[in-house]
Every structure is written in structure tokens, then in C-alpha cells.
Amino acid sequence: MLISPAFAQGAGGAAGGADMLTSFLPLILIFVVFYFLLIRPQQKKQKEHKAMLAAVRRGDKIVTAGGIIGTVAKVVNDDEVSVEIADGVKVKVARGMISNVLSRTEPAKGGSDAEDKADEKKTEEVKKD
């Protein structure tokens, strides 16, 4: 027998747990980097987009996911809006397909005509002074 058998050197029992931690440490660090550079900013962007879609109202100028620019003519329900893309041309668009709001309108006053006339008188008085 000219060839002697080779035996593997046994690892110590106490060093096995620490060795396992050092082998998983790079994977844990990669996950942390991915979380802060990719996952967290994407979640923030999704939250902002959802808030923007919830705030869409009549008169807002929007861009759809297909690139069509139009003005919101009517909010039909929670899932769709009616958009005027040209004079007299209205299309229904799913709210989720709105990619951007170009310009916002001021919120409508929720009062009666008498209150509106009183507000106009106050502004006229301020202008006179």
C-alpha cells in the first residue's frame, strides 16, 4: 500500500457557531443595503402616488399612463374619473392609470350663493381701502 488515506481535520465545537455567523454576515449586510437603497424609497414613492390619486378632483390637469394629457371633468367613483382630452371629447380613465398631476385646482367653496356674495363684498371693501 503505497497510498496512505487522507483524513479531514475536524472543526472545534465552540468555533462552529461563530463561523456560521461570519458566513451569514455578508448576506445580512446585502439585505440591509437593499432595504435602504431600494425597498424603502420605493415604498415611500408608492405611498406618495396613492395619496396623489386620492386627492384628484375636478379641474386637475393630469397625465395618464398612456401619455394622454387631459383635464378631470368628473370624478365618477373611487376607481374611475372622466377626463376631457379635447373640446367635447371625454373618456373614462381608471384612477390607477393616472401617472402624474400637472396642475391642481383650488378646492371649491362649500357654501351658498349668499355666502359667496358676502365674500365678494368683503374683498371689494378691502380693495377700496
Rank of each mutant, 00 (worst) to 15 (best):
A94H: 02
R58L: 06
H49V: 06
M1L: 07
F36V: 15
M52C: 01
I69A: 02
K74T: 13
E124N: 10
D60K: 05
F31Q: 04
G88Q: 10
Y35S: 05
L25H: 02
F34N: 05
P107L: 13
S82W: 00
F34K: 05
I62E: 03
A73H: 12
R95E: 06
V63K: 15
K127T: 11
G110M: 13
M20E: 04
K45V: 14
G96A: 09
V101W: 14
F7T: 12
E48C: 01
P5A: 07
K45I: 14
V91L: 15
T71S: 11
D116G: 11
L53F: 00
G110R: 10
A11G: 05
V76D: 04
A51T: 02
V91E: 13
D113C: 02
G88H: 07
A86Y: 01
R58V: 15
G59R: 00
G111S: 14
E84L: 03
A114Q: 08
I98T: 05
R58I: 10
D78S: 13
G12V: 01
S4C: 04
S112C: 08
S4A: 09
S99E: 08
I3L: 09
A11S: 13
I68M: 07
A8P: 02
K109T: 15
K47H: 13
G16N: 12
V93H: 01
K127I: 13
E80V: 13
G12E: 08
L27C: 00
P107W: 12
N100K: 14
N77C: 08
S112E: 10
K109M: 15
V93T: 11
D113Q: 11
K109V: 15
A18S: 07
K74W: 02
L29V: 12
G88N: 13
R58K: 14
F7M: 06
K128G: 03
V72P: 03
E120C: 00
L53H: 03
V126N: 10
V81Y: 09
T22I: 10
F31V: 13
V83E: 09
D116H: 08
V75Y: 03
L21P: 00
K127F: 12
G12S: 14
K50F: 06
V83Y: 02
G111I: 14
A114I: 12
V83A: 05
G12C: 02
N100H: 10
A14V: 09
I39N: 05
G59M: 02
R40Q: 14
A14I: 08
K128F: 07
